[in-house]
Every structure is written in C-alpha cells, then in structure tokens.
C-alpha cells in the first residue's frame, strides 16, 4: 500500500515518458494515412511493446516519436518536451529496423563515434563502456572487423550496442530480434531485462510476441494507423483454468460447487467434458487442485487457458477477414 502511494507521488513529479495525442501522419499529400489519431501514454520505466500487423504504422509512430518524421497533426511529448528537443535526444537510444551503418568503420570506431555523438565520450568510464557494450551484445571478438563484413544478425547486435553506449533513459527498438539466431534472441532479452532493471523506458516493435510477453510490461496494439488496445501484459494473461474430467466422469454439481467454495474461486462454465474456473487473484493452481482432490473429483488434466498476444493477432485477423466478408456481402447486395 505504501509502495503504491510512493509510486503515485513519483508519477506526479515526473512527466510520463511518452505522451502522444491525436497523432496524424499522412503521406502523398494526405492520400495515405499512416497514422490516424493515435493516442499513447508510456510511463517512465515501462517496457512497452508496439504490436500490430505489417503496415499498421508501428514504425511510422516510432519515427514520429523520434522526430525523424514530421507529423501532420497531434502532439508528442517525451518527458514533457518536444521529441526533437536536445534534452530528449541526449537520453534517447534508437535501434533502426534496417541497420546499414557506416560500413568502413569497425565496431569499436562505430561505437566511439556514437559515444561522441551522444556526448558520452568525456565520461570517466568511456573506454570501459565501449567494452561493456560490446560484451553485452557478444561482439567483443569481432570488434576490429570492418562493419561491411558483418552479417545481418551481427549488425543487429552492433545496433543494440550503439543503443547501450548512449546510456539512454528511453530507447526505441525497431524489431530488435529480426535476423537473430536463438542465442541472439536470448541476448536481446537479457539486454531488455537489464534496461528494465535500470528503469529505462523501452518502446519496442516486434513480431516475436512470446519474447515480448516475457519482458514487456505493457503493450499497445495498432492496426491500420489506429490504436486499438493499450494495456498491461498481466491483464491479458487469463486467470481462467480448465479442468477436464477423467474418463467422462462428470462430477456432481453440488460437490463441484462445494469444492470451488472451499478454495474461494468462481465456477464459470460446466460441461460434460470440462469446467472453467476463474481465479480471483489470491488463489493459485495448487489450491484448486488440492480442493478438487479433497472432494474426490477425478480429473484428467487441469491447465491455464493461456490467451496471449498471439491471440490478439488471431482475433485481429479474424475480424479483418469478417470485415472483408461483410464488405463483399455489401457489394453483392
């Protein structure tokens, strides 16, 4: 309780990391609307995921938040300042989706260049920082190799090192895991976890939803330039368990009710094959199982009904398909 109030007062003092209000960005003189009235709020210290199908406007939104793209309407504030403000730039890290870095440099030179650009070259730990960044992305062995000879995955790692070297307070990562091998993905996850520990606000675009689910705290779902959902990752994780009866032995309804009352959960749905149990937050799976066993209810299996980010994608796809069908129907009519 005291923790909550402390964090509340903290939030009042500091402006949110990102506020986007009614953002409109169009191309070709308004003919193509890449973003259409997007609102977004990212708190300081969040690891925030931007998800959505291809061409939804995630990258454009990122470009606008970085002030690399001009906006047509709307307002963006990063830590309460304009996105192209020098103070914002000082604490910003950015990993582009298609890294095509200055190929004649080697990794060390490149990082040194970006350390200078970020104004970190006079730090006492400047040299050590470069070493640390290279180690974090596991590139220390190839640090003297020319960038032109790097593979896609290595470039991605270097890009991430470039983010780390600037010691950002907010970073924008566009598809950080694309072109990465499984160890590379682990590495990205580690870096993100590190950022999270250091209270660095991270905004990440990714198609690797399971990775996102593991490290992100909040997410936003964008589709066709519009913001559809914006919530905490924990909210979408289902609190529902499904218990399947053993060999078709459907228990007595009263017994089942008693068992549920004993462990303090709610019964959502009962069929001949299974029942759905909604946890109320304080209970966990073992309470439920103990209670079921105590009441002699035979079950074949019990599992969480895990509906995650991938389900959001599926829903979105189904909705799209439905919409297409509807329009076709309309046309037929």
């Amino acid at each position: 309780m005291s923790n909550d109030s402390a964090s509340a007062s903290h939030e009042q003092q500091l402006p949110p990391a990102v506020i986007v209000e009614g953002l409109v960005k169009s191309y070709y003189f308004g003919r193509i609307k890449a973003l259409d009235g997007v609102d977004l709020r990212v708190e300081d210290g969040d690891v925030f995921a931007l998800i959505g199908p291809n061409g939804a406007g995630k990258t454009t939104l990122m470009g606008c938040m970085l002030a690399l793209l001009r906006t047509n309407r709307g307002r963006i504030r990063i830590f309460g300042k304009a996105p192209d403000h020098i103070d914002v730039r000082k604490v910003t890290g950015f990993l582009p989706e298609r890294p095509s870095f200055e190929s004649w440099m080697n990794a060390t030179q490149f990082l040194k260049f970006h350390q200078m650009l970020a104004g970190r070259s006079n730090d006492a730990t400047a040299e050590a920082d470069i070493k640390h960044a290279l180690e974090s992305v596991e590139l220390e062995n190839v640090s003297k190799r020319q960038i032109s000879k790097y593979s896609r995955g290595m470039l991605q790692r270097l890009g991430l090192a470039q983010v780390i070297i600037g010691k950002p307070r907010i970073c924008f990562l566009d598809e950080p895991t694309s072109g990465m091998d499984p160890p590379g993905m682990d590495m990205v996850r580690n870096v993100l976890t590190q950022f999270r520990k250091q209270k660095v606000t991270v905004i990440v675009n990714s198609h690797h939803l399971d990775e996102i689910e593991r490290v992100c705290t909040r997410f936003a779902f964008i589709r066709k330039g519009k913001m559809e959902t914006q919530e905490s990752i924990s909210n979408i994780h289902s609190k529902m368990m499904i218990a399947r009866w053993a060999n078709g032995l459907t228990p007595d309804a009263d017994v089942l009710k008693t068992a549920m009352e004993e462990c303090g959960v709610t019964l959502a749905d009962v069929t001949d094959e299974h029942c759905k149990i909604v946890l109320n937050g304080r209970q966990n799976a073992s309470n439920v199982i103990q209670s079921l066993v105590r009441n002699n209810i035979s079950i074949e299996e019990i599992f969480f009904d895990r509906r995650g980010l991938s389900d959001l994608f599926k829903v979105a796809k189904t909705n799209d398909a439905r919409r297409v069908e509807d329009t076709m129907d309309d046309e037929k009519r």
């Binding site: 002030a67 300042k81 304009a82 192209d84 403000h85």
Partner: peptide, 9 residues
C-alpha cells in the same frame, strides 16, 4: 519556438 529544439533554424 521552444528553445532547445534540434529540427529548427
């Protein structure tokens, strides 16, 4: 013009 912006003359 807000002071400190980078994309302005």
């Amino acid at each position: 013009i807000e002071r400190g912006r980078t994309n302005v003359v």
